[in-house]
Design a protein around this nucleic acid. Sequence first.
DNA 1: GGGTGTAGGTTCGGAACCTGAACATGGGAG
DNA 2: CTCCCATGTTCAGGTTCCGAACCTACACCC
Lengths: 381, 381
Amino acid sequence: MANSLSSLRESNRRMVTEAVRRAGTLTQAQLARTTGLSPATVSTIVRELRDLGVLAITSGGGRRNAVTLAPESGLLVGIDFGHSHLRVAIGEVTRQILAERAIPIDVDASAAEGLLAAELLVDELLRSLGAQRTEILGVGLGVPGPIDPLTGILGSSTILPGWVGINPALAMGERLGLAVHVDNDANLGALAEATWGAARGRRDVAYLKIASGVGASIIIDGRVYRGASGAAGELGHITIDENGRLCRCGNRGCLETLAGGLYLTELVRATHGPGVTVTRLVELALAGDVGCRRVIGDAGRHLGVAIASLCNILNPGLVVVGGALAEAGPLLIDPILEVVRRLAIPSAAAVLSVVPGALGERAGVLGALASVQISNMESAL
Amino acid sequence: MANSLSSLRESNRRMVTEAVRRAGTLTQAQLARTTGLSPATVSTIVRELRDLGVLAITSGGGRRNAVTLAPESGLLVGIDFGHSHLRVAIGEVTRQILAERAIPIDVDASAAEGLLAAELLVDELLRSLGAQRTEILGVGLGVPGPIDPLTGILGSSTILPGWVGINPALAMGERLGLAVHVDNDANLGALAEATWGAARGRRDVAYLKIASGVGASIIIDGRVYRGASGAAGELGHITIDENGRLCRCGNRGCLETLAGGLYLTELVRATHGPGVTVTRLVELALAGDVGCRRVIGDAGRHLGVAIASLCNILNPGLVVVGGALAEAGPLLIDPILEVVRRLAIPSAAAVLSVVPGALGERAGVLGALASVQISNMESAL
DNA sequence: GGGTGTAGGTTCGGAACCTGAACATGGGAG
DNA sequence: CTCCCATGTTCAGGTTCCGAACCTACACCC
C-alpha cells in the first residue's frame, strides 16, 4: 500500500513464482504467456528472483532454459492427522516426494501421544534419507477440524477428542524446534487438488473430504475461503435431519451422522465383522457386496442433499470429492449427482461437475507440503 | 492485462471513484488517506477524472475543495419488479433521489404488461419532474429471479411466471431506447445495503430478501458473488423438508414454502381475511396479534435452519435480512438467531450478527440506481 | 555440411506512473 | 494580527513495464 509501484512489482513477482510453483518447470517464454507479462519483464523478474534465491535456472541446453523453484538444499515436511491414521511426507521444494509413510494411530490418544508419534515418524523418515532435522525448511500440518485463525487453537468439532483446545502449530513447533504451519485437512486437500489434482486451473471449487468425518473447503478466486472465524467449509455439520442421531458436535442429524465413515462402518459391522474400516467398506462395495453398495449409495444421497444446498448458495462449477470413501468412485458419485440434479435449482445443477479427487488419500499430506512451500515463498518474497 | 502500468493507473482511478461514490463527498486529503495513495497522485487523478467528466470539484471555499461525482446533468432510473409491486425511482448521479413511486401490479400479468407499466411509471415520474427521456443516462432493473450471466435470460425459478425465458434487459431497453442493466433483486438489495445500509464497510456479507419469495445474495470481498452460472444465492430453494409442500420450482419443502410471503399470508388468510399481504401480516404481528406473531416466528425458525447451513458453509460475520417481512424486526430476527445458535457450529455462530436491513423496501430500487451509477462510472473509466 | 527459419532470451530506449520535497494558499487559534 | 497547520499543486527523481532490435541455439531442409 505504501508504494503502488513496488506493490505492482511485488504482485508480478508473486504471479511468476506462483506460475512456476503450479507448473513445476517452465521456460521464460511460457512464463510470459501464462502471466501476460512481456518477455522483457519476465526476464528481469526471473533474474531478480534467481538472485534472491527463490528460483533456479537449470540451463537445459543452450537458450531453452528451464525455470524451477530453487532447490534451496532443504527439506519440507508434511504431516496429516486423520481420525485413525497419521501420514508424513518429506519432499523437496521442487515438489519431489522423497519419503512418505502412513501409520495407524489410536483414536482416543491424547494430543501429546499423537504429536509424539508424528515426531518419531518424521525422525524415522529423515533417517531413511540419511538427513538431519537441521535440513528441514518448514513443516505443514493438517488436522481434522477447524483452526481458529486468531488463536490457532483447534475448534470444538474435531474428530480427535483429545485435541480440543490445544494449539497444534505451537505444540508441534516446540517438538521439532521449527515454525509449523497448521490448517484444516480439508483445506489442505483442496489446495492440493486445486494445484495439481482434479481441480487444477479452476479458480472456484468446492472440495469435500469424506473419511471418518465429513469436511469441506471452499476455494474462491484461487484462495481458500475461510470466513469470519475460519469455520467456512464445515459442511459435515449441516443439519440434514433435525430429529436424527446425535452427532459428536452436540447437534442432531448432521450430515456426518449420515455420511461420515464412523457411522457407515457401524452400519455394516453387524454383518461384516467389527473390524471393518472405511477402506474395507469401499473394497467390499467395489467387489460387489450389495449391502456395502447400499450403504455407500445412501451416504451419497445424503451428501447430495448437502451439496444441493451448497449449489444453491454458491453455484460452483466443480465439486471434488476426496477422502477414503471417494475411492468408491461412481458408487458414491452417481447417487450424489442424482440427488443434486433433483434438489438443486436447474441452472445451478446444469453447470455442476462432481468428480473424485485425483490425489486420493495423499491429498492432505501433499497439501501440507504445498502450504509450506507457499508460506516459504511468501516469506522469501 | 496488456499494460500493467496503465492497469495500475486504472485501478487507482477506480479506487478513487469508488471511494467518492461510497462517501458522497470527500476532500482530496481524505481521499489520499482512504486510498493510501499520495496526495500528489490523488491530485493528478482527480484532475484527470474531472476532465473526463466523472468527478466534480465544488470549490468549497479556498483550498478545502469538495470532490463529488459529476452531476453530469442527467438522470438515473431504477426499476424494481417484485411479486406484486413495481417500484421506480429517478435520481441523480450524486445519489439524490428526485422522485420515487411504487404501484401494485398483477402477479399473473405477462412480461409485456409489466414492462409497459414500468415504462408508463417512468414517464409519469419524468413528467412530474418536468424532464425528458433524453435526459436519462442509464437504467437499472431488478427482477425477482436469477439472470443467466451469458444470455441475460431470466431463469426458471422466478416469482413471475409470465417472465420465464425472456431477456428483461433487452425488452426494457427496446421500450426506453436505452441500455438497461438488469440483475436479481436480492443482488441489488445487497449492493444497496453494502454501500449505504446495514452492511456498510463490510467486505463479506450475506443478504436475504424475504418478501413473497426468499432470495439471497452473497457478497465476497466487496463484490456480488455470482457463481458459475449466476445462480449463487438461491437460498429460497434450499430443501428444508424433503417431504414438504410442493414449491413452484418443482421441488418439495423449499425454504420458500416455509418462509416465503406467499405461503405465510396463506396461513392467516382463513383467520384474518383473504386480502392479507405480507406488510399487513407484519403490522398485525407488531400490534400484538399472537397468530401472526407465531407465523412470523415459525418462518424465522425455518430461515434459521437455512442460515445455519449458510454459516457452516461460508461463516459470514454479518447477515442482513431485508424484504417486507424484515419489518417485523426482532419478531423475525430473534427466532432466526435462536435456531442458528443451536444448529450452526459454535465458532461460526459466535461471530455472526443478524440484523435487519436499513433501507427497507427501497433497498432494491436503490440498488438498481447504484448499479447504473457503477456501470456508468465503469464505462466512463 | 551449410544455409535458413523459428523461437527463446536479453538489452536498450521510451513512456507512464507514483512519490517525496518544496511551495503557495487559505483557515483557525491565540 | 500573526503564527501554525492542513490542503492542494508542481517538479524532479526513481521505478516499472513495454516494444523493438538483437543475439543465440536448435531444427529442418537441401
